[in-house]
Design a protein around this nucleic acid. Structure first.
Length: 925
RNA sequence: GCUCGAAUGGUGGAAUGGUAGACACGAAAGACUUAAAAUCUUUUGGUCAUUGCGACCGUGCGGGUUCGAGUCCCGCUUCGAGCACCA
């Protein structure tokens, strides 16, 4: 029989499914290994060939680890809540659940065809009540917790209440929205509503008035990572800043631990760097600046350059700063209000695009705490309200933004660093010697900037004019979405007080509604739900949770997916612990991967999970881009000219469906049939063929460059697809999908088959393998073993090809060799490996039960060895000798060579040291 | 602007500091075939030479370390990614 991929692959996929070959259970007798893919959002378009890249890579690793004797957890599921299904629902009235489950069915069908070894019994869907019960549960735990900054971890809110009862806020170390001072007596005197409001200031999941990214077109709030350059990531609609009362998660409390945790995980430097940027730790100082003529108000500013206090020539407040109202003088009130008004009408995007300097003087003067100089206080939108204290000291000589502002308003610029030329631009570098920086209180002159910063900070603390402070760019996550298709909050409002439902009410099911739109009064879609009240008649929260809620702990649920009593049992958690290998795209670097780590750390603090980091090793697979093809229409005609001849005509390039093109050669009849307007197309050919042009673009329908994996599987088989995707290039690199080379991989599988079968005749025999064949085999085992550990899958595929070519040349059909090939190939091309294992070699178990072979160096001996020859330890030249040379022979060759090169002329050889395979050291005198 | 990464044939890409270009695609020539497809064999970095041979040049640019550099160091150029009025 010939290699028939259709028959082989469907048969084995059926067998794996029927026998539950990949079902995984806890097994303390074997070491565990947890391999996870970032689960997909099941979109209506289905999978394209780019999606399986990471899945194939993780599948290879999983199968390899199994063959190595590990108990491998390799699950798959769906991130099923999301905006596209909801928008489709708005357009069609169809319940998003319906489209979602249809899409999931389609995804499953496509995934199955590729032959993955997932344990499908562990599948999860974020929109499944049995799953989102635990999303809601985690939210409740966060509501009932606060972050103790003294011990740096989450604690039950009851502990905080106990502290308030006893001491008020005195001695309380808790992450909060704003610092409060309350005595125990005041706390006790509060009514329920006041207490609730006060506790909100500390809860990890809290309701707060925060500036949010509001997207009017989507009708919802977005998280920072869902906004890029003032536009929504999904849809690209403008986003504006708006003050809203929203659920938030106090992610910022975990900023330092999220930063420190990066040292514990095995991720790429670039990804860690992206997270460090996003967390944005900066060390600096907060300093008080008194206001001249006022003793009721002082400006508190944050700076990383405490050393530049002597160069402060003005102060700037963010437009939203509370200070603005407090210090604006009556005569400037009108001008300030006008300025604030003009800012308000601008969206975030307009503010960003508009780089023009703008601002207004408040009329107030601040006093420099070191020099006593009085300096004007301005308001400007280049200062952000949400970072630091919303107020800055401006040092135009050494900050480019302050410099631009100073130039515009003609304010003085005092250079503080020797040799800095500030006539054209500011000198922002943190290096050089300080000048102009001395007063009776502090003298920094002559110091290096680094030392000056430290000295200034020390002074600020000692003199009590401020404090050393670390700021983070990372903000709390906004957790409310004004949408339907998400997890409902298990919260109701009792006399206006947000109150948790009891745990036995979980899961709180998403109610049915008539339309998936906001209500007429502007409430979120859940405002349409009938009977959306508790048994006592209290209204239930109308917002739903954001997309990242369901994806933040799904990796834990896979460990124990059907447990009705816990997110994950102690037993399952302590066995599977955390993800050993996580594969997914970089696009989640600042979203999912931050939120998951936060979520995990929170659960860790409460003792529900045993590992502080969820993902031990993380690989980012590259994006597969589209490779578009073009035909060239001669202008004003319906004649198309081949790529090589197009320069002779006036042509318009037109995208052509890549499925009509093979190796850049156009299928002419297919093209004519493609669209009515091309039915009577004429062609100018070169060498009898029409050659298309090509370009690398994003894979998308509009470019006609989407390649469906089903088509590849149908034509070449899943094994070819798997091998080819790996062969395309390094896993982590982005690369265009290019079908041009796929024949080579397919040919390899046919050649492999031909080692075992000629027609129907099985060629495997019991002959003694030749040394060459043994060498080819052991070279392969060694190479592939090393490659899998380093994810160099592309070179592994090449190694398979070399080995099979060598065995073919040697006409080797020895069982002693062929026995091992399917085992090392199984991770990459499991179907053909199973078939050969079973049919050609006669094993009656699946290859899953085989053991990974070890290579033996003795078969790999090279014929020549290279030595570097050195004189008195300094290497001079190289020699090559037969590999089996004795040290004496090596020595003789080295001396002869050295003699002829005149290195030994007039010298006495005292000693010769031969290091096997490396170096010959000749000691001369 | 800051941070990280990359640059090797016509193409995708290989090379623990040790023969650069593995493997594959594409291309060229040949075998088989009525023909095509499939398959097989050979050639394929450049230049010059050539029907025995070879020679020189070659890993973005300029330096350096080394007996020896695609690989390590310094300085650039270009491209990609992330962050960005974050004080």
């Amino acid at each position: 029989m010939e290699y028939n991929h259709r028959e082989i692959e469907s048969r084995w996929q059926q067998k794996w499914r029927d026998d539950r070959v990949y079902k995984t259970e806890i097994d303390p007798s074997r070491p565990k290994f947890y391999v996870l893919d970032m689960f997909p959002y099941p979109s209506g378009a289905g999978l394209h060939v780019g999606h399986p890249l990471g899945y194939i890579a993780s599948d290879i690793y999983s199968r390899y680890k199994r063959l190595r004797g590990f108990n491998v957890l390799h699950p798959m599921g769906y991130d099923a809540y999301g905006l596209p299904a909801e928008q489709y629902a708005i357009q069609t009235g169809q319940h998003p659940e319906k489209t979602t489950s249809q899409n999931i069915a389609r995804y499953r069908e496509q995934l199955d065809k590729i032959g993955f070894c997932y344990d499908w019994d562990r599948e999860v869907r974020t929109c499944d009540p049995a799953f989102y019960k635990w999303t809601q549960w985690a939210f409740m735990k966060m509501f009932e917790s606060y972050f103790d900054t003294a011990v740096g971890k989450a604690r039950p809110i009851a502990d905080l209440i106990a502290h308030l009862d006893e001491h008020g806020t005195e001695g309380l170390h808790a992450a909060c929205s704003e610092p409060l001072e309350v005595t125990a007596a005041e706390w006790k005197a509060m009514d329920d509503k006041q207490r609730s409001d006060l506790l909100m200031n500390y809860r990890i999941a809290y309701l707060g008035n925060t500036m949010v990214n509001w997207c009017p077109q989507l009708g919802t709030v977005l998280a920072n990572d869902e906004v890029s350059e003032g536009l929504s990531v999904r849809g690209g609609y403008p986003v504006e800043q708006k003050l809203m009362y929203q659920w938030c998660l106090r992610v910022s409390a975990y900023a330092q631990r999220l930063l420190d945790g990066l040292d514990e995980v095995d991720w790429t430097d670039s990804l860690k760097e992206t997270q460090r940027n996003w967390i944005g730790r900066s060390e600096g100082a907060e300093i008080y600046f008194p206001i001249a003529g006022r003793d009721d108000v002082e400006l508190l500013i944050f700076t990383t350059r405490a050393d530049t206090v002597f160069g402060v020539t003005f102060m700037v407040l963010a437009p939203e700063s509370e200070y603005v109202d407090l210090i604006t003088t009556p005569d400037r009130r009108k001008a300030v209000d006008e300025y604030l008004d003009s800012i308000k009408h601008k969206t975030e995007r307009e503010r960003m695009i508009d780089k023009k300097v703008s601002g207004v003087f408040t009329g107030a003067y601040a006093v420099n705490p070191l020099t006593g100089a009085e300096i004007p206080v301005y308001v400007s939108d280049y200062v952000l309200a949400g970072y630091g204290t919303g107020a800055i000291m401006a040092v135009p000589a050494h900050d480019s933004r302050d410099y631009a502002f100073a130039r515009h308003f003609d304010l003085p610029i005092i250079p503080l660093i020797e040799g800095a030329d500030v006539s054209e631009e500011s000198f922002d570098a943190k290096s050089g010697k300080m000048i102009n920086s001395a007063s009776a209180k502090l003298d920094l002159n002559g110091m290096e900037v680094k030392d000056a910063i430290a000295a200034a900070k020390r002074y600020v603390e000692e003199a009590g004019i401020g404090r050393v402070k670390v700021n983070y760019r990372l903000r709390d996550a906004i957790f409310s979405r004004q949408r339907y298709w998400g997890e409902p909050f298990p919260v109701y409002y009792k006399e206006g007080i947000p109150t948790l439902m009891s745990e036995d009410k979980l899961p709180l099911l998403l109610p049915e509604i008539d339309k998936y739109l906001p209500t007429e009064s502007g409430e979120p879609p859940l405002g349409r739900a009938k009977g959306w009240v508790t048994e006592e008649g209290y209204p239930i929260e109308l917002n739903t949770m954001p997309g990242f809620a369901g994806s933040s702990a799904y990796y834990l649920r896979y460990m124990d997916p059907r447990n009705p009593d816990a997110l994950v049992s102690k037993e399952a958690d302590e066995y599977w612990r955390n993800v050993d290998l996580y594969i997914g795209g970089t696009e989640h670097a600042t979203g999912h991967l931050i939120y998951s780590r936060f979520w995990n750390k929170f659960l860790y603090d409460l003792g529900y999970v045993c590992e502080p980091e969820p993902f031990r090793k993380l690989i980012n697979q590259g994006m597969i881009q589209g490779r578009s093809n073009f035909v060239y229409r001669i202008q004003g005609t319906n004649t198309f000219v081949s790529h090589g001849l197009k320069d002779q005509y006036q042509v318009t390039p037109i995208h052509v469906d890549v499925n009509l093109v093979k190796n850049d050669i156009l299928d002419l009849d297919g093209f004519r049939a493609w669209r009515p307007e091309f039915a009577d197309a004429e062609f100018i050919l070169e060498d009898g063929r029409y050659v298309c042009g090509w370009a690398v673009e994003k894979m998308s329908k509009s470019m006609f460059n989407v390649v469906n994996p089903d088509d590849i599987v149908e034509r070449y088989g899943a094994d070819t697809l798997r091998l080819y995707e790996m062969f395309l290039g390094p896993l982590e690199q982005s690369k265009p999908w290019d079908t041009n080379g796929i024949d080579g991989v397919n040919r390899f599988l046919k050649k492999l088959w031909a080692l075992y079968y000629k027609g129907d005749r099985c060629l495997v025999d019991d002959s003694e393998p030749s040394p060459e064949a043994l060498k080819a085999l052991h070279k392969l085992i060694k190479k592939v073993t090393g490659d899998i550990e380093t994810f160099s899958y592309n070179t592994s595929v090449a190694a398979f090809m070399i080995c099979v070519n060598e065995l073919t040349q040697l006409k080797c059909h020895s069982r002693a060799i062929l026995e091992y090939l399917p085992v090392v190939l199984a991770p990459f091309a499991p179907h053909i490996a199973e078939e050969l294992w079973h049919s050609a070699l006669g094993h009656d178990t699946t290859i899953n039960d085989a053991r990974w072979p070890e290579w033996d160096e003795k078969y790999l001996v090279e014929s020549t060895a290279r030595y570097a020859v050195s004189f008195n330890g300094k290497a001079r030249f190289n020699i090559e000798v037969p590999a089996d040379s004795t040290p004496d022979q090596v020595q003789a060759t080295a001396l002869a060579h050295g003699d002829s090169a005149k290195w030994l002329e007039g010298k006495t050889v005292r000693k010769v040291i031969v290091v096997p395979g490396k170096i010959v050291n000749i000691v001369v005198g």
